[in-house]
Design a protein around this nucleic acid. Sequence first.
DNA 1: ATTCTTATGATACGACCGTTCAACAGTGGA
DNA 2: TCCACTGTTGAACGGTCGTATCATAAGAAT
Lengths: 214, 214
Amino acid sequence: MTKPEGPRYRRYSSETRGAMLVEAGLACLARGGITAFTVDNICREANASRGLITHHFGSKNGLLAAVYATMYDRFTAVVAPEGRPEPDLATLVDANFDPAVFNPDSLRIWLALWGEIANNPELREVHRQRYLDLLATVERAVAAEAEARGRKLDARAVAVLFVALSDGLWLEQGIDKTMLSREAARDACYSFFDSVLGPLDRPAAPQATTPAPV
Amino acid sequence: MTKPEGPRYRRYSSETRGAMLVEAGLACLARGGITAFTVDNICREANASRGLITHHFGSKNGLLAAVYATMYDRFTAVVAPEGRPEPDLATLVDANFDPAVFNPDSLRIWLALWGEIANNPELREVHRQRYLDLLATVERAVAAEAEARGRKLDARAVAVLFVALSDGLWLEQGIDKTMLSREAARDACYSFFDSVLGPLDRPAAPQATTPAPV
DNA sequence: ATTCTTATGATACGACCGTTCAACAGTGGA
DNA sequence: TCCACTGTTGAACGGTCGTATCATAAGAAT
C-alpha cells in the first residue's frame, strides 16, 4: 500500500466554483425539475461537498437566483449579443428558435423556473429586471420596423404579445415535443408580425431536416 | 367536566373526501407552487389526518394526478360544457379568458403543474389524454370555420398554434399580471384567427379600456 | 341493540431536507 | 521553507418529507 497521494481536492476561485455549481444546478433542473434541485443532488453533480452552496451563494435560493440569471443571460447572448448592432425583428425571431436556446434541456429548465417565480421573491426580483430588459429590446425592434413602414402602433404592447407567443411556443415544446416543429413555431412568429406590420422579410430559413446550424 | 361528546370526526364517502383533498391540493399549489404540495400542508388544509391521501389516492402522486385532471375538467366545463352544441371559435376564445379559468389562482396552479409534467410520468399520462381531447375540440371549430369560408388549411396545426398562443398569454399573466390585460390577451387571439381565417365576428366585447393594438 | 364495513386518526419509521461550523488543506506570496 | 489566506470538507443538527401500519370509531345494515 504505497501512498499515491496527490491533492485530495482542487481549489478553484470563488467565481469558477460558482460557475460550476450553477452548471450543476442547471443539470439538476433539466433532469428532474425543481424537485431535483437539492443541495445533495447539486453538489454530487458538481463533485463538491455539501457546504459549498451556502459558502458561495449564501443559500440554496441564492444559487437558484444565479441559475435563473444565467438562463436569461445565455438567452440574451444569443438574441442580442454585445458588440453587435441592435437586432431587428427577423433576427429576434430566428434567435428565439436557435437550437442554442430552443432545445429540450433549456425548455425544461424554463418550465421549472416559471413555476417557481410566483412563489419566490428573490427569483421574482431577478425576473423583473431581466424581463424588462428583454422587452425593451423587442420593443425597439418593433418600433424601428413600424417606423420604417410608416405605421403607428403601440410597440410595447406588440412586444408583450410577441414574448407571450414565443413563450407559449416554448411551453408547448417543453411539455410535448411532438406537437410542434421548430419551423412551425418560427413561422407562427413571422405570421404574427406579418399581421401586425405587413409581410416581413424572412432570412435564410434553416433547412428543416438537416442537423441544425450553430 | 361534562361530556358534550358528539362524534369526534365526520365520515365522508370515499368520493367526497377525495374531492375535499383535491380541493386542498389545489389551494396548496396556488399558495406555494409544487414545493407546498406536501402531505402535511394538504391534510392540514383539508382538516384531515395524514393517512388519508395514501388511503384514498394510493400515494401523493396519485392525488397530484387527480388534481391535474380536475384542472383540465374545469377548463373543459367552461370551454365546451356538456349538453351544449360544439363551441365555435369565438366561444372558444372567450371561454379561454373567462374569469372562471383566467384568474390568478388558476394560472399559478397551471404554472406549477406544467413544471412537473416533464418529470412525472403519471402526470404526463393524464396530460396526453386531456390535451388531445382539447386539441380535437379546437381543431373541429377551426375546420368548421374554415369550411364556412371556403378556405383550405391545416386545422390541426392551427389548433396547436392557438393553444400555444393562449397558453403563452396565460403564462405571461401568471408570472406577472401587470404586463397584460385580459382584453389585450383576448384581442390577441382574435387577431391570430383574423390573420389565419379572415376577420372573425367578436361577440359582445367586454368593455375595452383602450382600443387594443394588433 | 348488534354486527359489519371501512373511513379515519395517530404514530412510528427511515430517508432526505437545508444550514451551520470547526477543522482541514491547497495555493500563492514571503 | 514557512506562513497566511481562504476555498473546502464532512459531520452534525433539527426539521420535514412520504409511506406503512394498526387500533379505533362512524355510520349503515340487520
